[in-house]
Amino acid sequence: MPVDAERDQRFARWIADFSSSARAAGITDATLQSAFDGIRFIPRVTELDGAQAEFTRTVWDYLDSAVSTQRVVRGQDRLLQARPAVDPAATRYGVPAEILAAIWGMESNYGSNTGDIPTIDALATLGFEGRREAWARSQLLAALKILQNRDISRAQMVGSWAGAMGQTQFLPSNFLAYAVDADGDGRRDIWGSLPDVMASTANFLVRSGWQSGQPWGQEVRLPPGFDLALADGEQRRPAAVWAGLGVQTMDGSPLPALADAALLLPAGARGPAFIVGPNFRTILRYNNSTSYALAVGLLAQALGGGAPVQAAWPRDLQPLSRSQLLALQTALNARSFDSGTPDGMMGPATRSAARRYQRSVGLPADGYPTLELLQSVQ
């Protein structure tokens, strides 16, 4: 039997097994028939799921494209056109229009690129593949509930290879929890209804902790000799306390009145510094990447006519590849600076271990992974 034919038989058995559990969870036979008639295994989805890039992008490289002049100009134009949908959502939920537009821009280039892979097929493929089966099964069940609610048709339910859908890329579980029918047509349509897109996105942010009237953060200047170990994005203090330690805005105006602010050095000691508040952490609930949250904040700032980042990025620094990060983690562990199980990913445990090592040898304790740091630890 050809390999593809044998795989398709196993896929069909997986679908039959999943259908039984979906039926037990309240999915009707009519919905299952609509969803799974003509279901296809998509090899490209498993390829993309397994393709972890060896080289990671620097934050400045990411921001160069995320907050490019072209994206800002296009965003200002699209925001002007979309005001009738954006402004009511901003008013109702207390989330600035520019933040909603920035997420819209980041997720689908303002609605122009929402993905064209059938969500049901993508999630079934990921579930069958098995690497993230429990997650994919839960998302597939959520997608079936969306079909059963008649929010969208099977043919129109398309998105990314990983199952994110619509103009602001909701996973099916987030759709069920946060999507809003803002235009009153009885359906929550984040693919074609801009009022629904904006209200759903704002609702997600508010339910995830967005605090109305507070900024996401601001670029700041640290005083000479500042203890960089304090700028780890985790240690929170009132802005007044940071001001007392010499932290200043770039233009000398008062720091934003944040009761629970942290300092962030996304490119280490030589790059820009930011003070960030609860709303920055809320954006991380949308996508748990510091670069992403920073891009949303800076794109929103630019859409509103605000200044770009003023301090220079250390563009001469070479980012570590995943294998080099793995070597760094292994070397830190060998020297008793516990960075957790080495996985080639720069997370809080690795940053903390790097800071402790840097402090032990008299280096600026910024926790930023560089080739010099790797060579020093090794």
Rank of each mutant, 00 (worst) to 15 (best):
A85S: 15
W191L: 13
D227C: 08
G252P: 04
R150H: 15
A66D: 07
R74W: 11
A354T: 10
A102P: 01
V377K: 05
D196M: 01
L230Q: 10
D251K: 13
G277H: 06
S200G: 14
E219D: 00
N174M: 12
A35Y: 11
P223L: 08
S193Y: 08
R57G: 04
P238T: 02
S323G: 09
S200W: 00
G367F: 01
S138Y: 03
L100P: 03
R237P: 02
F170W: 00
A136L: 11
I283D: 03
D196E: 08
A134K: 14
I152W: 01
N174G: 03
W216Q: 00
P342H: 01
S352V: 09
I27M: 09
I15T: 13
I190E: 01
R322W: 07
Q76I: 12
R270N: 10
P364K: 05
F11Q: 08
S138C: 06
R137H: 09
F11P: 06
L298Y: 02
M250Q: 12
Q81V: 15
L264I: 10
P195A: 04
N288V: 02
L228H: 04
G268I: 09
M198G: 00
I39S: 08
L363H: 06
D61E: 12
Q214N: 11
Y357E: 09
G186M: 13
N279M: 13
